[in-house]
Structures are given as structure tokens and as C-alpha cells.
Amino acid sequence: MKAFKVVGIIILLLAGLILIVPLFMPETSSVKATKSIEASPITVFRQVNKLKNWKNWSPFENDSTMVNAFEGSEQAVGAIRSWDGKKAGTGKMTIVESEPYTKITNKLEFADSQGIGSWKFDQQGDSVIVSWEITIKDLSYPFARLMGPVMKYAMEPLLNSGLSSLKEYCEKQTKPAIINIIYTEGISGLAIYDSVRVAGIGNLLEMNYGSLMNYIKKRKYSIAGAPIAVYHNWDPMGYIRISAFIPLEGKFNGKGNIKEFNIVPGKAVFTKHFGGYDSGDTHWAIEDYLKDFNIKTKDFIWEEYITDPATEPDSTKWQTNIYYPIKE
């Protein structure tokens, strides 16, 4: 009987501890990991900001039974991922804050709790210091609060593993193009408006630039800049509408299919492409930049061909300036 009484007292004490100790424990629990990655913050940021990219590095992707669903925006604020798996359990992640290349905040929802995922990207020279922190909020009384301190020891290795995988993946990627927003002065000159399928763009521009140069030289007009191609649309399966455009200064007049043409001053997203005239990857990089900053552009773009292939045979040195005018 005495033994039973002792056991009973121990059980009561343990029960008391389980009920009393959590009263003084925090309702939140946080874990944080940091890693230096030798890559552009643009590259690293985009791996986190687009939720479908998490499959490339996330430590939570090793559940073969996990089923993912994506909704909302493709990336940045409003992007949502939900999952269900035997190991991963059920959950949902929503991007609620996205500051390009510096900060991302995720809202986390689990079966019996919720939390916040915080990311910071701090560029240091040729590297970026990446910080990933997960905070679980509103831990239920009493057992979740008791388990709160355990989360740090369980989750920290996972976060470090994820950042190591993110580092390995990002350091293998090519450096992104340097893109920024500039103010462009107005440009005036003469142009020939035409249309052609993608495969014929080069031949069409060569022909129309030739016609423009013959017309300009015959009238001794003053050329003010490199040749420009203005793309009024992009339809890979149909016809591309293009204006071959030569900037001029002073007085000039058009005739027939050679018309006066103007690009008004304003802000534009700008980058330089080096290489042949197949600048598709650079345009994709600009499209990503526009999505990162949610920038709306006008219904045309232009390319400025700085290098003359007749004087520079090495196509890797050819420079093309690319402009996407911004809607004001």
C-alpha cells in the first residue's frame, strides 16, 4: 500500500509539473540558420520567392508521398503552396511580404499550429549572407509548449541542410544579367515599319537598314546614334511587327515607306547583352526582373545595336542595349 501511495504521489507531482511548468513557458518557439553563398542575391532570392523552386533545395522534399498544390500568384506576395504527406503532414505556406533581393516573409499554417518563415539576403561583396528563421506561434497548452524548446534541436539541422543545398544549387548557376532602371532621353529619326516571322527578322532588318542608310546618305542627314530595332509585339507563332530605326539629328524628312519616328523620353528597364543577336535569355532575365518588382511596361521594346559586325568579327563582343519602357 505504501508503494502505491508513493507511486501515486510521483504521478501527481509529474502531472502537476506537466500542467504548471507550461504556464511559465513561451507561446512561441524560433529556430534560425545562416549561410554564406557565393552567388548573386538575385539568384538566391528567386529560389525562395518562387515556391515551385523549393524542390531544388528544400530539406522538406524527401517525403515521396507528399502531394503539392500551388495557387495564387506565380511568385512573390500571394503565392501559395499547400502540401499533404505521411512524413510532412498537412500544411500551407503563403508569401505575405517580398522585397526584391533583400527580404521574404512566409505565413505558415499547420494542422495544429501556425507560424512565420523569415528570409533575409544581405550582399557581402561577391557573396550573400542568407538567414532563414522559422517561428511557431500560439503553442497550445500544455504539451505543445513543453515541446517548443525541442523544436530548435529538431529543426536547426534541417534548416542548415536546406541552406547547404541552396548554396550548392545557386553556386552552380550562371550570374544573372545586370539590370536597372534608367531615364532615357527622347530619340528622333527615320524608320521603316514592317512585319516578319521570327526566322526572317535578321534578313528583314538588314534589308531595311540598307534602305534607310542609302536614303540618309543621299540626303546627307546627320546620324545621331546606333541602329535601333523597335519591337511592337512578340508572337513566336505569328508575325513580329518591327520598326528598323536610325536616330538622326537636325532636320530630316521621310518619303514613301520611310517615316519620321520618335521614342519619347521616360523611364525604362535597361540591360546590356553581349554576344550574337539571339538575346532570348537576356529578355527572359528582364521578364524575371519585371515580375520581381511588379513593373508594368509599355506595349513595345527596343534594341540598340552598339557594335558593327563589319568592324568586330568576334560575335562574343557584340553589344546590344535593351530597353523596356515603363508605364508611368
Rank of each mutant, 00 (worst) to 15 (best):
L205K: 01
L205Y: 00
L205R: 01
L205A: 13
L205D: 04
L205W: 03
E206M: 12
E206Q: 15
M207Q: 14
M207D: 12
N208P: 09
N208R: 13
N208G: 10
N208T: 11
N208I: 02
Y209K: 05
G210A: 10
S211T: 09
L212A: 08
L212Q: 01
L212K: 03
L212M: 09
L212T: 02
M213D: 14
M213I: 13
M213E: 13
M213K: 13
M213T: 15
N214L: 06
N214E: 14
N214M: 12
N214Q: 15
Y215F: 15
Y215S: 07
Y215P: 02
Y215K: 04
I216R: 04
I216M: 07
I216A: 04
I216W: 04
K217P: 04
K217Q: 14
K217N: 15
K217R: 14
K217E: 14
K218S: 14
K218V: 10
K218Y: 11
K218N: 13
R219V: 09
R219T: 05
R219E: 13
K220D: 15
K220W: 07
K220I: 06
K220Q: 12
K220P: 03
K220V: 03
Y221K: 10
Y221T: 11
S222I: 14
S222Q: 15
I223D: 03
I223V: 15
I223P: 05
A224H: 07
A224Y: 04
G225I: 05
G225N: 10
G225D: 06
G225R: 01
A226P: 00
A226G: 04
A226Y: 11
A226S: 14
P227V: 04
P227K: 01
P227A: 08
P227M: 07
I228F: 06
I228T: 01
I228L: 08
I228H: 02
A229P: 05
A229F: 10
A229W: 00
V230I: 14
V230W: 03
V230D: 03
Y231H: 09
H232P: 04
H232K: 12
H232Y: 09
N233C: 07
N233A: 09
N233Y: 14
W234R: 05
W234K: 05
W234I: 08
D235C: 06
P236N: 05
P236R: 09
P236L: 10
M237L: 14
M237Q: 14
M237D: 14
M237F: 12
G238M: 11
G238N: 13
G238Q: 10
G238T: 08
Y239W: 08
Y239D: 15
Y239F: 15
I240Q: 07
I240V: 11
I240A: 02
R241S: 07
R241W: 03
I242W: 01
I242K: 00
S243V: 05
A244C: 08
A244D: 05
F245A: 00
F245H: 02
F245D: 04
F245S: 01
I246R: 00
I246V: 15
I246L: 06
I246M: 10
P247E: 05
P247C: 12
P247D: 03
P247H: 10
P247A: 12
L248F: 09
L248E: 01
L248W: 02
